[in-house]
C-alpha cells in the first residue's frame, strides 16, 4: 500500500502522520507537495492536520485551491481513498468531497485534550477492525471542529452509515457532556456515501506510538491495511 501525505503551507501534522505510517506501520509513504499535482501513484491520500495558509480566511478554505487538490478530487471520484484529519477534514468539506462544515467550537476556544470516541460502523476501510463497543481514547486539537450539517443531511448520513465516530465518555456514553466542541449529534468523523473519502477531527496519529503511552488510534491504520490485504 502506497500512502501519500500532502504538505500544504502551514500543515504541521504531516511529519507525525508520516512517522506513524512509515515507521510504526511499516508502509511506503510519499510526501506530496501541494504545488505539484502529481500524486505519484499513491493509492491512499492523507490530508494532515495543521493550519494550511494560516487558516486566515476560514479553515481549509484556501488550501482547497492548491494545485494538488484537483488531483485529489479526481482520485476520489475514481474511488481512490482519501483521509483528512483535523485541518485535512476541513479541507475536504471545503472542497465538497465530504458533506457538512466545521464551525468554531461552542466555547469559542482552541481545545487540546484526550477525548473518547466510539466507532459507529465497521463497514468502512477506516473502521473495520474497531470494536464498536470500546471507547477509543484519541486526542483532539482544534478551534474549528464543531461539525455541522442540516437536518436532512444528518438523516441521510445516519441512513447510509456515513457517521464514522461519535464523541463519548470513557464508558462509551454518547451525550452532551461528552461532546467537547458542540458538534451536531456528537459527530467526530464522517465519510462520503461511496465510503472512500474519510474525515475526522480527532488525531489517530497522535495515539499510535507505544512510547507515548496510548495506541488507541492504531486500530484505524490497522483497519486500512486489513482491507487492502484482503
Amino acid at each position: 500500500m502506497k500512502f501519500g501525505v500532502i504538505t500544504f503551507p502551514g500543515s504541521n501534522c504531516d511529519q507525525d502522520m508520516i512517522y506513524v505510517l512509515e515507521t510504526i506501520m511499516g508502509q511506503q509513504v510519499e510526501q506530496l507537495w501541494h504545488k505539484d499535482p502529481d500524486l505519484k501513484g499513491c493509492e491512499f491520500i492523507v490530508l494532515p492536520g495543521g493550519f494550511s495558509y494560516g487558516d486566515y480566511l476560514r479553515s481549509g478554505a484556501i488550501a482547497r485551491f492548491s494545485p494538488i487538490m484537483n488531483s485529489v478530487i479526481e482520485h476520489a471520484r475514481k474511488g481512490g481513498y482519501v483521509l483528512g484529519v483535523c485541518n485535512g477534514f476541513q479541507i475536504l468539506t471545503e472542497s465538497g468531497l465530504l458533506p457538512g462544515a466545521l464551525l468554531h467550537n461552542a466555547n469559542q476556544k482552541f481545545i487540546c485534550k484526550n477525548v473518547h470516541l466510539k466507532a459507529q460502523t465497521f463497514q468502512t476501510v477506516l473502521t473495520n477492525q474497531i470494536d464498536l463497543f470500546k471507547p477509543l481514547n484519541i486526542p483532539i486539537a482544534h478551534a474549528e471542529g464543531r461539525y455541522h450539517v442540516d437536518a436532512d443531511t444528518l438523516e441521510s448520513l445516519n441512513e447510509y452509515g456515513q457517521v464514522l465516530f461519535r464523541y463519548c465518555d470513557e464508558n462509551g456514553k454518547v451525550d452532551a457532556a461528552a461532546n467537547p466542541n458542540g458538534s451536531v449529534d456528537n459527530i467526530a468523523g464522517v465519510c462520503n456515501r461511496e465510503m472512500n473519502v474519510f474525515g475526522m477531527m480527532p488525531h489517530p496519529e497522535r495515539a499510535a506510538d507505544a512510547e507515548l503511552g496510548n495506541e488507541d488510534g492504531k486500530v484505524l491504520f490497522e483497519s486500512i491495511l486489513n482491507i487492502v490485504s484482503v
Binding site: Q15, F110, E211
Partner: peptide, 27 residues
C-alpha cells in the same frame, strides 16, 4: 493548558503519563 496544542509533533511523553518535568521523546 487546554488552549495550547500539547501533542503536535508526537513527542510529548507526559500526555498519558503526567510527570514533574515535560518529557520529549527523542524518536
Amino acid at each position: 493548558t487546554e488552549q495550547y496544542d500539547s501533542m503536535v509533533g508526537t513527542v510529548n511523553m507526559s500526555t498519558n503519563g503526567p510527570t514533574d518535568a515535560g518529557i520529549v521523546n527523542l524518536k
